[in-house]
Write a protein that binds this DNA or RNA. Structure first.
Length: 464
RNA sequence: GGCUCGGUGGCAGAGUGGUUAUGCAGCGGAUUGCAAAUCCGUCUACGGCGGUUCGAUUCCGUUCCGAGCCUCCA
């Protein structure tokens, strides 16, 4: 049995992960609202939880991973009005873009990717039940969740209601009994998407969808609930409140999800990447400049709970690493490998690091240390190293082949025949010790944007 | 005001009550027609102040600094 330790945001400490059902680990992570291009912050969440799921699959076999898509929301409606484009057309478009971008980052599709609009009926019945149980009240056509009925509200984000400054950033609606009350159902205005309900045509509040979809698809309690740190409060807190009240587990804060995990923010110049600051980087823009794997490794380069400062430097560092390991894999592709990982000490060390709350940096350093003097190793040791690279690569989703295609495509933009001819001429010159000519050809190639390297028996070239 | 999380060498980033993290960059050397790659060697560190201890970067206290949340957010 594995000894995975994860940091549980509810308990605020690292704890041993003990699955509810080891035969099927159930994970839910809050996905994006699809009204704009995926940004690096969206990508970090997707990559972090994809990596977690990959690790859990390695350890336990079956994992059911759910990550939702919010496709009905005020922000989408605003966007729709602004762009004069239907809500459906916007959400379809950005849903597809999100999945395409994530695929480029080697993010495996979740087992379920439910859309909020597919669960409106279920949400209505859940809200009705909350209303019946007196956890909700009506105010100006809205159905509000009554936070005062839930004593342990705030337990996830360790905050007391009375100590908060209400309306610190967002104005508190006047019809709320308590500032923390949140909307379960709101009436739609003319022209806005609406569903029939016992409270008239309207749409669900944001916090209801995740609780309903997680409950419907995974059933409660499930193992891990995740998302970005900014969802901890109020979104996850509100999900928890609804679930506990819905199921009647009023004091059982682990009756919804057994563990909670939150990834840290992506920052720019140490400030949170956010729309209001206008420092958002889009995944699609970086995919034009870097291999998806490079972006992925960059997103994993800091521990998942720490802030990740997004910079050219982190990208070039990741690029170096990707290139280095891909090269090693390429050079040793003829080694006959066995599948069994048992007895491979390097794999064992990597696993130890990953089991400690997914310490990817440490696991990579294990590889680095072994690769350093690889040429001195015998064949068995080399096999172990290659196996370890593949093992780690599989879990963190890098060093795979295929994505290098982007680089290859770039190379096709050049006239290969011409380059090869020049290289041939230069090598002849070198053979004849006509180094002036050889150097001139090198210069010529550099002017074309081509850098050449003489290796033992061939000259290779790449775009600068 | 409340609540979180941080502060490690030029940069990124782990970790540890005593002994090299690791990578990139730098420096010295080997190799090379040159260059690159590679290899060998090597320097730079734990925010401040107290305390516990034989010994603290690590534990405790305190202080300074930074980031985030307190109903838009991944």
């Amino acid at each position: 049995m594995s000894k995975l330790k994860i940091y549980d945001s509810m308990q605020c400490k690292k704890v041993l992960f003990e699955p509810i059902d080891p035969k099927n680990i159930r994970v839910y992570a809050c996905g994006p609202t699809v009204y704009d291009y995926a940004h690096i912050g969206n990508a970090r969440m997707a990559v972090v939880f994809d990596t977690l799921v990959r690790l859990l699959r390695e350890l336990y076999g079956k994992v059911t991973y759910v990550s939702n898509i919010t496709d009905i929301d005020d922000k989408i409606i605003e966007r729709s009005k602004k762009e004069k484009e239907s809500v459906l057309s916007i959400t379809n478009k950005f849903f597809k873009i999100y999945n395409d971008d994530m695929e480029m980052l080697n993010v495996m599709k979740p087992d379920y990717q439910p859309k909020a609009t597919e669960f409106v009926e279920k949400m209505i019945s859940a809200i009705s039940k909350l209303e019946e149980k007196k956890f909700a009240y009506q105010a100006e056509g809205n159905i509000m969740f009554d936070v005062s009925k839930f004593n342990i509200y705030g337990s996830l984000s360790s905050r007391k209601r009375e100590e908060q400054i209400a309306g610190r950033r967002v104005k508190v609606a006047s019809f709320k009994k308590n500032p923390e009350d949140f909307v379960l159902w709101k009436p739609s205005k003319d022209g806005e998407p609406a569903w029939d309900s016992p409270w008239g045509p309207g749409r669900p509040g944001w916090h209801t969808e995740c609780f309903v979809m997680a409950t419907e698809i995974l059933s409660t309690p499930f193992d891990i609930h995740g998302g970005g740190l900014d969802l901890k409060f109020p979104h996850h807190e509100n999900e928890l409140a609804q679930s506990c009240c819905y199921s009647g587990n009023l004091d059982k804060k682990n009756s919804y999800a057994k563990y909670w995990m939150h990834n840290g923010f992506v920052t720019v110049d140490s400030e949170k990447m956010s729309k209001s600051l206008g420092n958002i980087s889009l995944v699609k823009d970086f995919l034009k400049l870097y291999d998806g794997e490079v972006l992925r490794l960059a997103l994993l380069s800091a521990h998942y709970r720490s802030p990740l400062n997004w910079s050219e430097q982190v990208l070039s560092q990741s690029k170096n690493r990707i290139t280095k390991y891909k090269k090693i894999l390429e050079e040793h592709k003829n080694l006959s490998m066995i599948d069994d990982v048992k007895g491979n000490l390097i794999v064992h060390q990597i696993e130890e690091a990953l089991l400690d709350d997914i310490n990817i940096s440490k696991s990579l350093s294990v590889l680095d240390a072994n690769v350093k003097d690889m040429h001195k190793k015998d064949e068995t040791e080399k096999k172990n190293i290659i196996q370890a690279i593949k093992y780690l690569g599989k879990i963190i989703g890098v060093f795979s082949n295929g994505i290098t295609a982007t680089l290859k495509n770039e190379e096709k933009l050049f006239n290969e025949e011409e380059i090869n001819l020049l290289i041939k001429k230069r090598n002849e010159a070198r053979k004849n010790k006509d180094f002036d000519l050889a150097d001139n050809i090198r210069k010529e190639l550099i002017e074309m944007g081509i850098e050449i390297k003489d290796q033992s028996n061939e000259t290779i070239w790449k775009k600068v």
